[in-house]
Nucleic acid binder design. Structure first.
Lengths: 143, 143
DNA sequence: CTTGAACCTACATCTATTGTAGAAATAAGA
DNA sequence: TCTTATTTCTACAATAGATGTAGGTTCAAG
């Protein structure tokens, strides 16, 4: 039994358009079509799409996922390569957590000092207007 | 003394194109022009742009910044409004940290089990292929 | 055979920039 | 004043990772 794109979407937790998008960028193979031109998928497409969605949920980029899929497709899997992609991503995640934590501290500082009575001096706005806090130029915005 | 767009960029830590973009979307006012058509900025543009860049560095969206700027421009500042924007953002940051922390745990689990000798069973790939880990459909990818 | 849901393509939209091409303006030095 | 290097100008395209839309077709059930 084959699956329509909508059924595949439900099975793997993705939007229909997202599947077509993945096909377009070459992450999912072009499936067979009905005489009317509709896509029909085999069971293994569910696995592949689930893999992609899960990796996305873990924050891997589509490029990283493309690499992981190549490794997964390879019969003589190179575990160390997949491992290093995951490690690299782990390091990025750790760095992002650290950045967000210092961000959190600064936000708490902004928010804590404002008791709502002193409307003339708004801590939030003053903090953002304060040049010292972003003294170094060309800092990257933390997403 | 007025500033060229390049000097403003250097003073506030932004790219020239970014300034033109901010003007285009109405975050920065249109400055006066020379007879030749080049932009010339007053000193206060440095402050405003620094405010924006700093807020961006703290992860505020341009829409949030637009709101903060309106509040900052208002002579009778409503501190509580700015405060609630910052609090809202703080909550989002906290949520993102929590999501990244569980992500980190899962990545560590993936990576720790692979000692590099057992190449037949790649933990990383198997974890991603495992359906159970993302059982609920329509989960949002954590950015 | 009809009807409504799902599907098709192609294009636009979103965020927040960054990069490009090709032309014009400006500032500094000779 | 002339030249030249740097900067600036506009307009458009690209990035990631999808999502939304319009207008039309196909499919499956009754």
């Amino acid at each position: 039994m084959t699956l329509s794109i909508g059924m595949l979407a439900r099975r793997a937790g993705a939007k229909v358009q997202t599947i077509r998008y993945y096909e377009q960028i070459g992450l999912m193979a072009e499936p067979i079509r009905t005489y009317g031109g509709q896509r029909r998928y085999e069971e293994d497409a569910v696995k592949r799409l689930s893999f992609i969605r899960h990796a996305r949920a873990l924050g891997f980029s589509l490029d990283q996922i493309r690499n992981l899929l190549e490794l997964a497709d390879d019969p003589k899997r190179d575990c160390t390569a997949a491992d290093s992609i995951a490690r690299e991503h782990l390091a990025a995640v750790k760095a992002k957590i650290a950045a967000l934590n210092s961000l959190k501290r600064e936000l708490i500082r902004m928010v804590d000092c404002c008791d709502g009575t002193d409307t003339a001096h708004c801590r939030v706005i003053e903090t953002l207007a304060n040049h010292d806090l972003c003294a170094s130029p060309n800092h990257e915005p933390v997403q």
